[in-house]
Design a protein around this nucleic acid. Structure first.
Lengths: 335, 335
DNA sequence: TTGAAAGCGCTAACAT
DNA sequence: ATGTTAGCGCTTTCAA
């Protein structure tokens, strides 16, 4: 099956390889109808499938885009991937997805691998730590688009949520519900991960804007195995307990909800809760959780279209303006 | 950056292409240390990245495995993908994931695309409808492993959950909780999707085994937009209501939970609930939902190892025995 | 220890 | 309307 080549088809159809190539690429213009028919049936008889690898080598393009995500476990990531894939498919491009696991070395090795595989462009949820490599790509005029995280200087088109606004929406909603003692729940901020940093920053600003104090103890940013302990210490200070929680992403939400359940804290009776990123489970749970969502569809779609445009016309500007997308609040029953 | 070829490195290092090739492939055996050094620095200076496409063409292998999933929205799918990817990475293989969306034509086109891209093997969550194509692959001795769904005859290694056992676990658990009026919630069974069929079959057997009648009305198998309507009609028959629900996969679980919430049905007060496939949200919700889980890790790991073995030694047997994996019950608070 | 040369399967410019 | 030919960048004998 794999050994059938264009040559075999050519011989069987009694034409030259070039004519078969024309046929494969739908250029029937100057081809005699009879020839076309013969090639057609030769292909069918032999079960011929063209070899894209050879084609890519010759054409120096692969019609595929590499996608390096920081962490595939986030629902935001998988949803974005789906949109990117759909958009690419419509343009006859394929995507090759790699998971960097928030690890700069892994990311670097994937960048090299994908370049080696001759992808035509790269969509990256960048980790910090490979700036040199990005600059390299920039210098080579290689098409890249960043999403979700920002690199300074902004040398490639960058798509980001308005993260401060997202926190503002959450805080305002909680305040409207009469809760002023808000504890933020995040994940580790080592590594300077943009959305986490910006959401925390937005959280503080929103508090201040409303004349509320910022209590650093109520900004819980820890890794999975640490977070429970920290939440406990916040909660056990009975004289000074928060009456609301804001989880800054889906993972943090899971940790928070797990913690609250384990400690018999009732929502919204004891505390109100708002989390980032939606999930059908959050809507179906009791109480249904109020969330702030990202416009995944637009963000994914625009990312794909920008990279596609760059591939067609690889003219990188000196510096880019970060493109910001607006979050949305979905009020349910947890406030 | 992309235009640097082995030839450039060779010139810069003052050696021939062949020697550079040896270096790239870690064959330093008969290479003078000085030569090695020169090549090393030439590569660094030029930022040379080898072209895998050319390598693949020459070697007729790509060190990548195509993975065609039936539906990427199922958590089972994404978890399996992760395990497969990890296992492949350890063996210096990459995976190229495609989502067939339960559509046989899409699946067929992905099979062709991946073969065209010269993948060394295929892992498929098969839809029904492309049997001819599978036979083709079989005839060509092309390495393929099926997972999650069964094709008859079993011409490729096939990895499946013991689906009937899964239903038995769910039913037994519900019975133990004193609930005998159990309604199964699934998705459309058109297309003969193995796990759905087998879980329904196992459900019936488990009922019968316990001397309970099988009520076909209480086997709800509908598409997303229909399922709510059907559940409503089951529930509105007030004289004859189920007192327990069993959702046969993660999607069905979401529909069920959404329905129950919308209709103010309390769990486990009004009805007990058991669902297939776990999620952190299910564990953190109130009440925590009792689930039956699949051994994702083993299933993914074995799938990857089998395909890797087949690639190394492509000797397909005439027919295979389906490999069955055991589900597990995790009891929580919903029964 | 290193180099020369052929060829993987395809495309595209050029001939005819 | 169809064929000839020269590579794309690499690996791999074989020779030196």
């Amino acid at each position: 099956m794999e050994k059938v080549t264009m040559k075999d088809v050519a011989i069987k159809a009694g034409v030259s390889k070039s004519t078969v190539s024309q046929y494969i690429n739908n250029r029937y213009e100057y081809m005699a109808p009879a020839t076309k028919k013969r090639i057609e049936s030769a292909i069918k008889d032999l079960h011929y499938i063209p070899n894209y690898v050879a084609k890519s080598l010759k054409q120096k393009k692969s019609a595929t885009i590499g996608v390096i995500v920081a962490n595939i476990l986030h629902s935001f990531t998988t949803e974005i991937i789906r949109v990117i894939e759909d958009t690419c498919k419509q343009n006859d491009f394929h995507i090759f997805v790699c998971n960097a696991d928030d690890n700069p070395e892994k990311e670097q090795s994937y960048i090299n691998m994908l370049i080696a595989k001759q992808v035509d462009g790269l969509i990256i949820f960048p980790t910090t730590g490979n700036l040199e490599s990005y600059k390299q790509l920039r210098k080579a005029q290689f098409p890249v688009v960043f999403i979700d995280r920002k690199m300074e200087p902004v040398i490639f088109p960058t798509i980001l949520l308005d993260n401060e606004k997202a926190s503002e929406l959450a805080v305002d909603c909680l305040l409207k519900g009469g809760k002023t003692r808000i504890c933020l729940v995040g994940q580790s901020i080592e590594g300077g991960i943009t959305p986490r940093l910006e959401r925390i920053e937005g959280f503080k600003k929103a508090l201040l804007k409303n004349g509320l104090p910022v209590n650093e103890n109520w900004i819980v940013t820890a890794d999975s195995h640490e977070i429970n302990k920290q939440l406990l210490s916040v909660w056990q200070d009975e004289d000074n307990r928060p009456n609301a929680f804001y989880a800054i992403n889906g993972m943090a939400a899971i940790h928070l909800l797990t913690f609250l359940k384990a400690n018999n804290v009732r929502i919204p009776g004891d505390v109100s809760v708002v989390t980032m990123d939606d999930s059908p489970f959050l809507a179906a749970s009791t109480p249904a959780i109020t969330v702030v969502t990202q416009p995944n569809y637009e963000m994914g779609k625009d990312t794909a279209n920008i990279i596609l445009g760059l591939i067609e016309n690889p003219e990188l500007k000196e510096e880019y303006q970060v493109l910001r997308y607006q979050p949305k609040l979905i009020e349910r029953e947890s406030v």
